[in-house]
Simulated scan of single mutants.
Amino acid sequence: MSLTTLIELLERLDENHVQMLDLAAAKKQAIMDNDIDSLVDIMSRESKLTKLSAQLEEQREQSVFAFLQGVGIRSNLNLNLTELSRLVFDPEDKARLLHIQGQLADTLDRLKKANELNQRLIEQTLAFIDYSLDLLVGRPNQEITYQPPSGRPSSVSRPGLFDARG
């Protein structure tokens, strides 16, 4: 395999991550709209893209090893793209490699931020659901029927959301 093959694999990885970024935006909207059916569909498509990413990553590792073999390095070094670019002497190839590295890093950073935002939205949604259930169902041991203050047994205290006695 040549450097061109490696660059093509990196470009495919970037395209895959851009698709995942699009799904992250759709997921954000589905979470905000509370659209469970869309969310399930998006997560299914995300799973397929994640599997494809793993396959492309495996191919990338094989391509790096083949490239290293081609330049005379016989050990299986775990080099990052910056270190690998030092072994590329053709200015055009080096520029292409460094360009896709920057592009891929930017896409991955945006994807990470989108996923973190979606995680926070899900956590907020779950907290809201929990709070809503507490309001609808009531806290454990909370009186279900109204009793005038004078009719309440003195040993039962009503738990509230906030304990001001602290």
Rank of each mutant, 00 (worst) to 15 (best):
E8T: 12
L10G: 00
L10W: 01
L13T: 10
V18L: 08
Q19Y: 09
Q19C: 08
A25G: 11
K28L: 02
Q29S: 14
Q29A: 15
A30R: 00
A30D: 01
M32E: 07
M32N: 05
M32S: 09
D35Q: 08
D41Y: 08
S44Q: 15
L49D: 10
K51V: 09
K51W: 07
L52Q: 06
S53I: 01
E58N: 14
E61D: 09
V64A: 04
V64S: 04
G72N: 06
L77H: 03
L79V: 07
L84Y: 06
S85N: 04
S85P: 05
F89V: 07
D93L: 09
G102E: 08
T107E: 07
L108K: 08
D109M: 08
K113Y: 12
A114S: 15
N115W: 03
R120H: 03
E123I: 01
Q124G: 02
Q124V: 00
L126S: 04
F128S: 11
F128W: 10
D130I: 01
L133G: 00
I144R: 13
T145Y: 11
Y146I: 07
S150G: 08
V156A: 08
V156K: 13
S157H: 12
G160Y: 09
F162H: 08
F162E: 08
D163R: 10
D163M: 09
R165P: 03
G166M: 07
